[in-house]
């Protein structure tokens, strides 16, 4: 997939999977590259569990409407999230999903990896968000991997930084 002027991304899963933070980091990476970003989220009252959504729009131009209307890429980290969006794959939306928590599905544009298991094997299940972002940005050039690494370096220190950079690398290597 060649680089586009505008990307609309949905990160879906359940509360506690760090999806909003993933959306923020993806957005910050785009900001580093000098582009406009709008990031929104939708969540219930619980800090853990329940369908949680983060949306990111990256554009060279002004972003007028703040919600994703025509997603380019979707990340689904739970069965509930995948169920909600799987049908869009047929319409050309690239969907990445977590085979640890969602049932594998066959079809064009549907890419499953055991993101949660890999993150867990790395010793940090919380890095599943960054690992997924690594895979997604390696497959679709929404932002450069270096920009994401730059954001991670800004946000984390010490052991957490090392772990998250490692998760990013592992994600990229999946593609």
């Amino acid at each position: 997939m060649g680089k586009k002027e505008r990307y609309e991304i949905i990160l879906a899963g359940s509360g506690g999977q760090g999806l909003v933070l993933a959306g923020i980091m993806l957005g910050e990476a785009a900001v580093l590259e000098g582009r406009n970003v709008v990031q929104t989220q939708s969540y219930g009252i619980a800090s853990r569990g329940g369908l949680s959504l983060a949306e990111v729009i990256i554009d060279r131009e002004e972003i007028i409407y703040q919600q994703v209307q025509e997603p380019d890429i979707i990340l689904a980290l739970t069965e509930e999230a995948l169920e909600k969006y799987a049908a869009l794959a047929e319409k050309g939306v690239r969907i990445f999903y977590d085979t640890t928590l969602a049932k594998p599905r066959a079809g064009e544009n549907l890419t499953g990896y055991p993101f949660t298991k890999i993150a867990s094997d790395l010793g940090n299940v919380a890095s599943v968000n960054i690992l997924s972002l690594g895979a997604m940005t390696a497959a679709v050039p929404m932002v450069k991997t270096e920009s994401l690494a730059g954001v991670i370096r800004k946000r984390f220190q010490g052991k957490a930084l090392e772990m998250n950079l490692e998760a990013l690398r592992k994600g990229v290597e999946l593609i």
């Binding site: 923020i24 957005g27 900001v31 582009r35 990031q39 989220q41 703040q66």
Partner: peptide, 9 residues
């Protein structure tokens, strides 16, 4: 709430 929670450049 949308505008208050939205992140933007």
């Amino acid at each position: 709430e949308i505008v208050a929670h939205m992140r933007e450049t």
